[in-house]
Nucleic acid binder design. Structure first.
Lengths: 218, 218, 218, 218
DNA sequence: CATGAATGAGCATTCATTCAT
DNA sequence: AATGAATGAATGCTCATTCAT
């Protein structure tokens, strides 16, 4: 507008705007994860972002709008996982271990993940609309499903266990370890945090998943 | 009055008080489960209970006090499970199925359970202090642990899988099904609610837990 | 009523009632002095009295009613001072000292006095009605006024100073010492509490009152 | 805008903010004086100021914060008195009259003064901290003290009366006249308000202060 | 007379959102 | 684009008073 040059010239104003939006986004992601969509305060987000409160409304419409974008981003980041997409038919026999390990990794690298998911589930999924989900639906899921189906046909995976159940089990094991560490640790009176404990649990969970709980399969 | 027994006469005043307190409790349990400790409104609880707001403070001290009592109650109700306590050494081979089934039952009969647990985990377990846990710590857990250990000695359960891991897996499977139904169902684009689906998933989860994911154990 | 005996028989019930009322009165006096008519809480008064809250309403009508009775009592106690009433014409030359000393005494024995007075003045005297004042109006004041007038006629007291001014000065000196100790002590950065300081100040105030501030009366 | 001077331009927004804060301050001063720190209502202050309630918290942090600023202001206004600071060694013989007259003036121009002081004394001085007092401690007090000491050395003022006592007497006379007018007037059954009465009392109080209560100093 | 439960108006404070510059 | 002031609907909690037994 003020600049006469046509094309993709980016004015300093625009550049600053992009930075401002990004800062809001990061602050929002952090605080929504920590305190939930209701507990996070707009003032707090603005302050953490070092930005004027009103900008949140200018860029995201409302607190809920920002929350929505944060949600989509977190889902998307989890969805496009290269390690899982790189699995091939040759990996079918070992894929369970890879998936579990990758899920553990995703949670560890993205500690907000289970928190945002938990809040969504508690709120009945009100944060995202149907439209949003089509964008999100993980690329790797279709890929894993294809491999699993092949595995079933080859007689590797059980025919009497659907892919949905298979994946949900892997989801739940990894998710629960992070999401319910506090209450479970208190209930069992056993420490669950820490790298060593985590690795041990992962190994044992995988053992059950592969071979079942029984010592000998008669 | 109605009772002829001397000594323990209960005045109508006391009876009303007990009812009032119970109504507050029920309303609190419902709303805390639905909206969380932060989202639930004191006015709303009072209105749902059909009770004067001030009574909440008279009986529970504060909103947090009511929340705490609700939490304890829900935990306690889950903790004292007769079906699990009734298991004997003869049931060791089938106990996994019983436990999973019982967990599913607990969640189904007590839909607030996973919600309150989720909120506690999100809030870092601030609702209950260390002291309360001793009361809560499930009686059945010690019982199951004893059976599991016997099972391990008898060569029924794997020696390389701890009871903690074993139980956490059963916890997570059942918990996750309820707590993450919404997001998972949308993510996988598969309906997860409904009696039939639920039973099917339970059966399949048990299959994996017992025999592992592989079709044949070579 | 229940008792058939005529005359002044006092039932145990009545006796208890008298005690209850007295306990409320004492608790009210203490708390009204400490926290004022607005700051004092009915619950607190009842608790301190060890009495059911409702009894306050039964015996005194309202919180304000209790406050009123407490006020009257405190005034009355200050009004009927034997030491001042015992002054005779022979004491005229020394009466100023006696009055000041007595006022100091009254304040010291009745620490609530200035506080209740202060609150009344701040509230515009809403605690007491016109009627009440006739009962209260101190007996000793008329007595002192008579002596002062005689003193003036005898040439002892100045003719150009009214009794009103004379007494108000004695009032203010003693009252202010107690009522404004805190702020004055901070303003002058000088400690004002303590027996020794108090005596010294009393002596010096009397010196001025008797002889004026100047070293020599030329 | 209106000013042509560069640099110090004040935006209309800032101007409005200053006005808003000032309005809150004035309303607070009025209502705190009238009803005390506990009796004054935040809603009422906001309404009287014609301002949104939340602005009080934005500008003063809390009701207590506003009260504190009001207190400091009232003290400060009383502390910096030009007439008293202008007194010189030549005025020593007449300074008592000037001080009393100035104190009467301060009270008359600042009817909130004794009220706020009274509340502070009743509340145990909780409104201000030690730090605040250092700012407040009157400039004129040190000045008067210096003059009084010189007066004592010159043989004008009595050696056996401390400055503290001297000033406290002048404080109390003037303060009491305003603070206890209501109860005293009722107790003595004499009207104390009104310009004429006030002047008469002032004159007579000064007479005593200068020459004592006795008609002749033998 | 005494008691404990109940009531309803009120109170300080917070917060998402909008306005004006 | 950015800022700081302003708004109004809550939000958890208190308290004088009344009711019912």
């Amino acid at each position: 507008m003020t600049s006469a040059s046509p094309g993709q010239t980016v004015s300093p104003k625009q550049r600053r705007a992009v930075r401002t939006k990004a800062r809001i986004f990061r602050a929002g992601a952090e605080l929504f994860a920590a305190k939930g969509p209701a507990g996070a305060r707009v003032d707090e987000i603005a302050q953490l972002a070092g930005v004027n409160k009103e900008r949140i409304y200018a860029y995201f419409g409302s607190k809920g709008g920002l929350y929505r974008e944060v949600l989509i981003d977190v889902y998307a980041r989890a969805a496009h996982n290269k390690r899982l997409l790189a699995l091939t038919e040759d990996d079918i026999e070992t894929m369970t271990g890879t998936v579990v390990d990758t899920f553990f990794e995703i949670h560890e690298e993205n500690p907000s993940f289970w928190r945002l998911l938990s809040w969504e589930n508690l709120n009945g999924g009100s944060g995202l609309r149907a439209i949003d989900w089509q964008q999100i639906r993980s690329a790797y899921i279709a890929h894993l499903q294809a491999l699993y189906t092949i595995g079933q046909k080859r007689g590797v995976f059980r025919a009497d266990v659907d892919f949905t159940t298979y994946l949900m089990l892997l989801f739940s094991m990894t998710y629960f370890y992070f999401s319910n560490r506090i209450t479970t640790s208190r209930l069992l009176d056993v420490p669950l945090s820490g790298e060593a404990v985590r690795r041990q649990i992962e190994t044992q969970l995988l053992t059950i998943t592969r071979h079942g709980v029984f010592a000998t399969e008669a």
